[in-house]
Simulated assay, not measured.
Amino acid sequence: MTAPETPETPRRSGLRGFGHAGPSPWTDLDRPPLDEEALRRDLVLPGGLWTSLDVVTETGSTNTDLAARALAGAPQGAVLVAEAQSAARGRLDRQWTAPPRSGLFLSVLLRPEEVPVERYGWLPILVGVAVASTLNRVAGVEVGLKWPNDLQVEVDGAERKLGGILTELSGGAVIAGVGLNVSLRDDELPVPTAASLALAGASVTDRSTLLRALLREFAELYGDWTAAAGDPHASDLLRAYVDRCTTLGRPVEVHLPGDTVLAGEAVAIDGDGRLVVRTPEGARRSVGAGDVVHVRPEPR
């Protein structure tokens, strides 16, 4: 995901690269390194979306590194995965921290030339749908999407954040970053409201399996979306998102720029991917940015 303006030089991964790059990856046998060559063989295929795939031991931010490649003219379909990120951040510049090899930290470079720029705002939603669908199908975990694209699971009866998505424009390309907690234990969580697939009882936590499935799912959905010129109705993206959105139908507080708070009920997602909030007075307002808090109704 994203990082400071000055990217660090990434250290390459793969089994051969770890001997001089710090502690052995096998110090935690539950968290083996990703096999870059095997992933390439399975995912970088003639005529497919993915044109390159690199795994690095550590970098500041995969989003920042791919943004630099985009500015240099890199083609669509580049995938960059980091075993650890030292300066990752999520939406609203929040820091994202996790132990090495405890999750999936990746970015992809997209150039959706068939899609009008005004529809690019659907890309983080598309990524969220792809991740949620993959985890439900492959790992047996019901994942919800808190608007716009936080990944949520239920642990011990409480909603917790499993991961997040951040997209940025660079050199005419879209860089989409995903951070997903896979094997974090209770004592490794950055905050009590975070979660991991392991804590959610996932049937599969092998990162290679999850990464293959996620990139294949995304490629299929992205193909449908671009073929429909980014139309969220024709591509069925809007329906797929609404089906997984945990924000709709709930009381919310949207913290907007300028310390403004919009309170009401989340009633819809409009054709531009914005959240529609109905105020207590009955007015409807669409918001395209803000930090959403799900408000629990007072017990009766």
Score class of each variant (00 low, 15 high):
244 R>Y: 06
228 A>I: 02
30 D>N: 02
151 L>G: 15
150 D>K: 01
130 A>W: 05
95 Q>I: 11
134 T>Q: 15
218 F>L: 15
167 T>A: 12
49 L>F: 01
194 A>R: 11
21 A>P: 00
287 V>T: 06
203 S>L: 06
88 A>F: 00
168 E>K: 08
257 P>V: 12
142 E>D: 08
289 A>G: 05
241 Y>A: 13
204 V>E: 11
264 G>K: 07
177 G>Q: 13
148 P>G: 01
206 D>W: 08
266 A>G: 03
50 W>D: 01
49 L>I: 03
49 L>V: 04
76 Q>V: 03
251 P>L: 09
9 T>F: 00
247 T>L: 11
247 T>W: 06
165 I>S: 07
212 R>I: 04
230 G>M: 14
92 L>T: 08
127 V>I: 13
229 A>W: 08
259 D>Q: 14
115 V>K: 02
111 R>D: 00
109 L>Q: 00
285 R>V: 13
248 L>H: 02
48 G>W: 12
172 G>S: 08
295 V>Q: 14
279 T>L: 09
277 V>Q: 07
199 L>N: 08
258 G>I: 14
55 V>T: 07
41 R>M: 13
277 V>I: 15
213 A>V: 12
209 T>F: 05
215 L>D: 15
277 V>R: 11
266 A>C: 01
47 G>I: 14
285 R>W: 10
257 P>N: 14
88 A>Y: 06
151 L>I: 12
21 A>W: 01
188 E>S: 10
160 R>G: 06
97 T>C: 04
19 G>I: 10
125 I>H: 13
125 I>Y: 12
33 P>Q: 03
8 E>R: 14
165 I>Y: 04
105 F>S: 02
291 D>W: 02
51 T>P: 03
31 R>M: 01
71 L>A: 06
231 D>T: 03
